[in-house]
């Protein structure tokens, strides 16, 4: 597919702040499944800071905005050619050892219920079949319902609730995979959703599980599939916060409010 992205994040502060610092993972990953045609990130009055490729292969770009400022906009526009690799992250250059992704973080810590859920996958032979099974049981256990959870909901809480969004699905899958010794990580990106997809689905998240012999393989429990040509991968981390496309902090007393719009379109009709 040839996907176009238009992604606007607008930050408003109820009183002007003195400065804003941001760290972006907003560039599509370089791997065999996607090729960037053009891509541009702009920040209102932003001063570009350091840029580098981190150990996980993500392009990181820092930005600062000098205050006083009461509104800034991060605007991402670009087009990406995508291929269906059945979720396999082929040709991705990275240095972090998979084993690093066995370490729990607060939102991905497994409680007894998650651990029990993870055990069901042991009926399968081999890591790939187990990963597929885990993605299926997580999808069954957590129904998609926007608004049921919030940004800081943990995997354990989402499972107890039985409802959540893609972030909760990804956290729960990661937690389960780590329980049975499979390295797993959180991936943020975009999704082209055909059936009147809402904005919260276009800015999407899923999980990757490391399968010996294959490498990292994506699983999207929210949509019961592996990432294909409808997906654009941005970056990864141990959990949602670690993989966030935008991490930012403002200096000052202004209280922040956020407004996000994402449009992903297929240019090849």
């Amino acid at each position: 597919m040839l996907l176009s992205v238009d992604h606007v994040t607008r930050y408003r502060y109820d009183q002007p702040v003195r400065a804003v610092m941001q760290s972006h993972r907003l560039t599509p990953s370089a791997f065999d499944g996607q090729k960037v045609r053009n891509w541009k990130v702009s920040v209102t009055d932003g001063i570009p800071g350091g840029a580098f490729r981190d150990g996980a292969g993500d392009r990181v770009q820092a930005w600062t905005v000098k205050g006083p400022v009461s509104e800034i906009e991060v605007h991402v526009v670009g087009t990406v050619e995508t291929l269906d690799l059945a979720g396999v992250l082929r040709g991705h250059r990275e240095m972090v050892q998979p084993e690093v992704y066995l370490v729990d973080t607060l939102p991905t810590e497994a409680d007894a219920a998650l651990a029990a859920l993870a055990q069901t996958a042991l009926a399968e032979e081999g890591p790939l079949a187990r990963a597929h099974r885990l993605a299926a049981v997580v999808a069954d256990a957590i129904a998609y319902r926007p608004g049921a959870t919030h940004a800081h909901t943990t995997a354990a809480e989402a499972l107890a609730l039985g409802e959540g969004v893609c972030q909760d699905h990804a956290h729960a899958l990661i937690a389960c995979a780590r329980v049975i010794g499979l390295p797993a990580r959180y991936v943020s990106g975009y999704l082209f959703a055909t059936a009147d997809g809402a904005a919260h689905e276009a800015a999407h998240a899923w999980a990757e599980i490391h399968v010996a012999g294959l490498g990292w393989v994506g699983f999207d429990p929210a949509n019961r599939c592996c990432p294909d040509e409808r997906y654009i991968r941005l970056g990864s981390g141990l959990d949602a916060q670690d993989a966030a496309p935008i991490r930012g902090i403002a200096r000052g007393l202004g209280v922040e409010s956020l407004d996000v719009t994402v449009a992903v379109q297929n240019l090849q009709q």
Partner: peptide, 12 residues
């Protein structure tokens, strides 16, 4: 210091 690590990683 918010942003210190990005400066560090990019050699600043």
């Amino acid at each position: 210091v918010p942003g210190l690590m990005d400066v560090y990683r990019s050699g600043g």
